[in-house]
Amino acid sequence: MQVNVNGIDTRYVLSNESGGPWLTFIHQLGGDLSIWDQLAGYFRNNYTVLRYDVRGHGQSAAPAAPCTVADLSNDLAALLDALGAAHTHVVGMSLGGAIAQQFALDHASRVDTLTLADTFAFTAPEARSIWDQRADAARRDGVASLMPASLERWLTPDFRRAHPEVVEQIRDVYVHTSVEGFALVCAALRDFDVRDRLSAIRAPTLAVAGRHDTGTPPAATQAISDAVRGARFELLDAAHLAPIEQSQRFAGLLETFLQPRV
Rank of each mutant, 00 (worst) to 15 (best):
A117K: 00
H57Y: 03
R202I: 03
F122V: 05
A98C: 15
G97E: 04
A108K: 07
T221K: 02
A77V: 09
V143H: 02
C186N: 11
P164Q: 05
A117S: 14
L33K: 02
G96V: 02
D32V: 00
V54Y: 04
T205I: 01
G84D: 15
H240A: 05
A188E: 03
S18C: 06
M147K: 11
T216S: 13
F182D: 15
Q246L: 04
N74M: 05
A86M: 14
G7H: 06
R44F: 06
N4K: 10
S150H: 02
A149Y: 10
V111A: 00
L39N: 07
D9M: 11
D158R: 04
S247N: 06
T214L: 13
D136C: 06
Q246I: 06
R44D: 13
L184T: 08
Y47L: 09
G181A: 06
L33P: 03
D132C: 10
W22T: 09
T115S: 15
R197V: 05
P204C: 12
D172G: 09
D172F: 09
G142M: 06
G92T: 01
A231P: 00
E180C: 05
V228M: 04
T88H: 07
D106S: 13
P66K: 08
D196G: 11
R232H: 12
T68F: 10
L23N: 04
A135M: 11
N74T: 10
S94I: 02
G19R: 08
A135L: 11
V194H: 09
P164T: 12
F25E: 00
E234F: 03
M147T: 08
N16Y: 02
N74S: 09
A162W: 01
H240P: 04
A238H: 01
V54E: 01
D53L: 05
A108W: 05
R139K: 07
T205N: 06
F122W: 08
T24M: 03
D112C: 14
V111I: 02
T214V: 11
V167E: 08
L95G: 02
Q222H: 15
N45S: 14
Q169L: 14
D172T: 14
G19F: 00
T214N: 09
E255L: 07
V179E: 07
E126C: 03
V175Y: 01
L206P: 00
V69A: 11
L79T: 13
G30A: 03
F192T: 04
G142F: 04
I130T: 13
S145D: 08
S94P: 06
